[in-house]
Amino acid sequence: MNNGITTPSAQQLNDGKAVAATNKKRGITTDRLLSVLFILPSIILIAIFVYGFIGWTGYVSLSNWNSLVPDLSFAGLKNYVFLFQDFRFQADLRNTLFFTLLFIAIVLILGLLIAVLLDQHIRAESLFRNIFFFPMALSFVVTGVVWQWLFNPSTGVNLFLKKFGLEPMWYTSVTVIPGVEWGKIQFGIPVAILAVVIAAVWQMTGFSVAMYLAGLRGISDELREAARIDGASEFQVYTKIIFPLLMPVTVSVIIIMAHISLKIFDLIYAMTGPGANFVTDVPGVYMFETTFRGNYYANGAAIAIIMLLSVAIFIVPYLISSRKREAS
């Protein structure tokens, strides 16, 4: 994916230089001037509406603005200290952690598995590809509403499971496994979050299938042939040749899924809400409720900043490494 973006722009740059070189000196300055002029509006807009407001949010998160009347006096880290001692926010961090881990792991494994199966030159491949990709076209809100009813303990899949004597509580369960006391919460995997993970996996697996399939198609047959001639079994061809070559795809999928799951809001909001005892609450939902219902603007801003930092932990190393690769 990285290559797909950088190659054309690098080429354009070279073309531009070539054209400029044939022009007189004055032509170069005109081109430069024009290019600066053309990107100026977006630079200004992004500077104000993205980075400016990130800065503003950071500033608000350090203030005392926790009512309808703006109070921008400096409060230090008070809002952050409050959050990390708050039962609900501790639960949010736990839920986000396990949601992200489970969601990404399952999306990767399932996506790779389906992609490998689709890659066996089967019949009606494009039909299957579309079937797996379709849920991606839905909005998370739709997915949330549908799965809310599917996993409603008194209707949905339980009507079927009842026949086998099973009646899981799905997202209404308040059990946390293993539930070790930690801070104010029980630490572990909340059972309720599994229902949300299934819904999210259902929606996003198509994406990793498509990525892996593209990756698989990019591996030349000669490589596989060569491995086979060297005596590799079909299993070894995958584990020793193909999977390592798919590593860049895996990294891309992880980055994209991580930033979706760390910021997730709509799916949870539509499907379960904060949940009993906050077993399905996430920072996004807490941020929305505390800011726009409770009017705790500074607390909300602090949550937003923590979310930004948590995404940055994934994105920044990725950006740095891809820049290095570009440079080399």
Binding site: P153, S154, Y171, T172, T272
Partner: peptide, 8 residues
């Protein structure tokens, strides 16, 4: 005395 699935 409330229904078990109240949180859904």
């Amino acid at each position: 005395y409330a229904n078990k699935d109240h949180s859904s």
